[in-house]
């Protein structure tokens, strides 16, 4: 059993996942955007999708299935990008305008 396919890796991966979501929550709140449970779940789902894409490409490369890595990588990356844009817009819902001239403003 190697590290990256061991239980220890998934334990570490769980920790960094929680830290990443926590960091995102703080970052969003600092930008005056509330980050409740549903946003937390939405962001987690999208990160899982991104994680699947990375792991899929890695596994295909490891198996020497280069066509799968390329085609699958492109397909899943496009899906990730499109859903990422949608998720980003949903995450910005409820953002409060605090100063005039803030060009990022959105309600």
């Amino acid at each position: 059993m190697w590290f990256f396919t061991s239980g220890a890796f998934w334990f570490a991966e769980g920790i960094v996942f929680v830290l990443a979501i926590t960091g995102l929550k703080v970052w969003m709140e600092d930008r005056n955007t509330p980050f409740g449970l549903w946003k937390c779940l939405l962001a987690s789902l999208w990160m899982l999708m991104l994680g699947f894409t990375i792991a899929f490409i890695g596994t295909s490369v490891g198996e020497n299935e280069i066509v799968a890595a390329k085609k699958g990588g492109i397909i899943f990356s496009v899906i990730c990008f499109i859903t990422g844009v949608v998720v980003w817009r949903l995450l910005r819902i409820g953002r409060v305008k605090i100063a005039p001239g803030d060009e990022d403003e959105e309600v």
């Binding site: 990256f4 960094v16 994680g51 490409i57 890695g58 198996e63």
Partner: peptide
Amino acid sequence: SAVAGSTGLWFFGTEAGR
């Protein structure tokens, strides 16, 4: 963590594949 997690998943994938 986001960068580390993504990198870890890449190595997980390649290791799982071979």
